[in-house]
Every structure is written in structure tokens, then in C-alpha cells.
Design a protein around this nucleic acid. Structure first.
Lengths: 265, 265
DNA sequence: CTGAATTGTTCCATTATTTGGAACTTAATT
DNA sequence: AATTAAGTTCCAAATAATGGAACAATTCAG
């Protein structure tokens, strides 16, 4: 349950929409519903302005104002997201391969894509217990300390990579989290060579993963798939072995996309 | 998989945000990614205007533009929704009771709330198979042909109810769907008396449910919970029996909310 | 291959919306 | 009852959105 303060996109914070999205971000990222005054402090805007902006967001169902004057994320966001997810082509194509990989390894499998500096998880296939929905799906995680993130970064052309890394602000989640662009860059080059990435408890202590990059032909889509699990069960040796099936699954997904979307351009 | 064209909220379609939300609705409700020209036809706006609006939505990550010039819902919506869902107090309080009800009956249990003319499903607890996430959660369904919807409507004060009904446009999904405000109103009055509602295959042929209303003290939150399943397994007699446990579960949820949020006002 | 048609993008004077300071109302606190 | 804080409304000034038209890039037809 990590919340990272980074931008999901390279959003402009100017323009009417941009300013409203900043507010929406503020409220959705908060740990609890916020009062008008709380938002006022966080947003640093004139009261009149803020009040009208919040009113508009509430009118559109993007925020909700409860009886105690607290602002919470609006349920209309759920409706939008449900549609966004249900019809996502990348996810639809990847799903069967994720299931195969889960069955083969018995561990949790994730699918994520790079958006700005974050990885957004598009799907998750777990073993035993019924999936707690939305548990991970939709969550934005940092790219510099997740397997899927580093795999995705390894797909970037040199210049874009340097630019992105320059804009990162590192948070040391664990002892092994990368906290400098230099060491991260070195590892990403290695990953680009070998074609797979590890997360050696860099985001969460006790959690490891192997990941392989997945991309669309025109590189508009860059992400990855991973097998994740507790360190006590997933030795680094085992993860090295699993680098093969992850890469194979990644290849299958890309082949699937080629077939489905391929004949054009 | 029903898409209903009704508004989820009483949104104003004026103002900068309102106009952009109309576009977002358009794209997310479409069955497939739309081209610029498609949206142009649907939105009926000047080309220059539309182009800039779409550009802004893309810049904010609310829409995505693929390599073929097709607009699809943006993944940032997922991030917003994941947060909106994870911290929803109503859902958090209801969850254990939904699980209990599922275990007691063996059938699928839903939690939904009324937003405008639609029911938005907040949670779903299924039996056997691992839940396909987002399968129903977040979906907006019509209020006039679902158990949760009719249960929620039965909570409205007479005047609001008449107003809402007047604004409905009925779609006859099955032979038993209400298609007039009169018959619907009559049933809702009955539901208000007895405290539970049925869906007699009104939304989907072969699917029945019993639902009970759930509301917050100040009535800002009006929704319901339901037990849903195939008609061959859920006789009307069985559903009558289950009206008791659904109502009990509803009562428990409301008690939970009172305890958690109660001491005030 | 050329010209015509369609589709998508940019520009900018006009128009409409947003801005933000201040006055005002309501609720909480002493 | 008086004081402070919280929330809401108002309006001239500043800013952003509008939409028509010109421009570019693709696609299509002969």
C-alpha cells in the first residue's frame, strides 16, 4: 500500500483542466477525506477560487462532499475506470498469458505499463485466495524500484531515459532501493542487455520479483510483466530460472499484439 | 455488459470542465477507440475547439491517443479510481457483511449506491471462481430494473422520487423490464412498505435477485445490497426466504456505519 | 502519378469563463 | 455575548476558451 507522490503523467498544471486535476490528485491521494480548509492549505489558492473549483468537481461527480463538509473522491471515477479497464486491448491480449504464467509458477503475476514516471498496474493474477479487487490494479508505483518499472525503462531510447531519470526524485523505501540516477542507469543498461529485470526487495522489504519488458511495435506502449512473491520462497536462484518463462510469456503477448493489431501502417 | 446512456450524475454541461467531461463520457462509453472524426460527429463541436479539448484531455492522461489516431480512455483514470475505491468508507464497513451473506447463501452479493439515475456497484463478492476484477465493480446500471436500484429508489422522499422518475428514459432490456413510470412507482411504494426488492429478470434474462436498501443517517448515501443468481437456481420462493438475511445484513451495515461515523450531528 | 477529397492541425481576434480580493454569512469557541 | 474561525457569495479585471478560416498531411480515385 505505497503511495508515491510523483506525477503519473507529464501533465501541464496550467489551463482550467490542469488546475482542476491538481485538486483531484490532492483529494484522491490524501489518506482521508479533506475539509475545505485542509485543501486550502495544500492547494495554496484564493478561497473564492478554490471554492468554485471544488464545487465544479462535485457537480461533475469527480468529488463528493459529505454531510460534514469533507471532500472525498467521487464514484463517477469508478465508472470511468471500469470502462477504461474492461476494454483495454493490451490487457485483453495479455490476460491468458498471465494466467499461464501464474499456473506455471504458482506465484502472483502482474502486468504494468509506464506512464510518465510511474508504473500503472493493469492486471494481476493471484494464486489461492480470491483476488481482492482493485487491490493492486490501477495503482501507480514508482518506476525505479519495481521489476516492471525497470524493465519498462530498459526500453527507452538513451536520451528519453536520461531525461526521465533526471526528473526523478528518489525515495528509499528499503535498504536496497536505488537512490541515485547513476546506479539505476547502470542497472537499466544491464537489464537492456539481458532482457529481464529483478526487484531485490527494493520497493517492499521481503518482496522480490523477476520481470520482462513488453512493448508495442511503435513503442507507444512500454511496460512489463512480473512474477512476484515473498523472498523466503523466491530465492534469487529461482528468480534467475524464472527469467526464462517470464521472457517467453512476454514474447507471446507481443506476438498476440502483432497478430491482433499488426496488419497496418 | 450493459451500457446505459443515462447520466451518472446531474452534471452541468456548461463550463469548461462540463464540456470536457461530456467528451470523456463519449469516449469511455464507446465500444471501441474513436477517431477524431467520429468524435467530431458525436460531439457536434467546431473542429478547432474539439481538437484543443482532446489535446488537453490527453495531456492530463484522461484520454490516450494511439499510433493510429484513435482516442481511448486514459490509464490515469485507473489510478484515480483505485484510490477512490480503496478508501471508500461505506464499502469498507459493508465488506465483512457482504462476505457473511455470500457464505450464508452461496450466491453472488453486490453493494451499490444511487448516483443520479444510475446505480454504481461498489463491491461484489462471488463464490467459487476467483473474481474477475472490475467485472461489475464501478459499472453504472439503470436504477429502474435492478434490485439494488429499486431498493435505493424506495428510500427517496416522494417528491424527489417523482422528479427522478420523470427524467428516466426506459429501455426494455427484457420482457419484464418496467417501461413506464406508473408501474415502477407502484412497485417502489410496495418496496418501501415491505423493506426489500426483487429483480425478476428485469435487467438480464435468467438473472434474479433480492435486495435490501441501505442508507446513511443523513440520507446522503442511498443504495442497497443484493443476492443475485440464475433463475433456475433462485426460485421466487427462495428469494422470498432470503429477503430476511438480506435485510439483516443491511441492518448490520447501517449499524456499522452508525458506530463508525455516528457520534455527531 | 496526379489531382481531389478527406482528415487532422494551427492560428488569432472575439467571446466567455475563470480569477481573487473583499464583503458577507454561518458555525464553533471562549 | 463577543470573538474567532470556517465557509459562501459577489464582481471588475485577468485569463483562457471559442470557432472560423487557413494550412498541412493523408487517403482515395482516375
Amino acid at each position: 500500500m505505497s503511495s508515491n507522490g510523483e506525477n503519473t503523467t507529464t501533465a501541464r498544471e496550467t489551463g482550467t483542466l490542469g488546475k482542476l486535476m491538481v485538486l483531484l490528485d490532492l483529494v484522491t491521494h490524501a489518506d482521508a477525506p479533506l475539509r475545505f480548509t485542509d485543501i486550502l492549505a495544500l492547494a495554496g489558492q484564493p478561497r473564492g477560487t478554490l471554492h468554485r473549483q471544488l464545487t465544479h468537481l462535485v457537480e461533475e461527480g469527480l468529488l463528493e462532499l459529505d454531510g460534514d463538509g469533507r471532500y472525498a473522491p467521487g464514484l463517477r471515477l469508478l465508472d470511468f475506470a471500469a470502462r477504461s479497464w474492461a476494454r483495454n486491448e493490451f490487457r485483453l491480449i495479455a490476460e491468458p498469458h498471465l494466467r499461464d504464467l501464474q499456473r506455471a509458477t504458482g506465484e502472483t503475476v502482474h502486468l504494468g505499463v509506464l506512464r510518465g514516471q510511474s508504473i500503472i498496474y493493469l492486471d494481476k493474477v493471484e494464486g489461492r485466495q480470491p483476488v481482492r479487487m482493485y487491490s493492486q490494479i490501477g495503482n501507480a508505483s514508482p518506476c525505479y524500484c519495481t521489476g516492471v518499472g525497470k524493465a519498462a525503462l530498459s526500453l527507452l531510447p538513451a536520451e528519453s531515459l536520461v531525461d526521465l531519470l533526471a526528473g526523478l526524485s528518489f525515495t528509499g523505501f528499503t535498504a536496497s532501493t536505488h537512490v541515485s540516477a547513476e546506479t539505476l542507469l547502470a542497472e537499466i543498461r544491464e537489464i537492456a542487455d539481458q532482457g529481464y529485470a529483478f526487484d531485490r526487495e527494493e520497493h517492499e522489504a521481503g518482496i522480490r520479483c523477476v520481470a520482462a519488458p513488453v512493448w508495442s511495435e511503435d513503442r507507444t506502449f512500454m511496460g512489463g510483466i512480473s512474477i512476484t512473491g515473498p523472498a523466503y520462497r523466491l530465492s534469487m536462484e529461482l528468480l534467475h530460472q524464472w527469467s526464462v518463462p517470464v521472457q517467453l510469456a512476454a514474447a507471446s503477448i507481443m506476438e498476440g499484439m502483432r497478430v491482433r493489431l499488426g496488419p497496418r501502417r
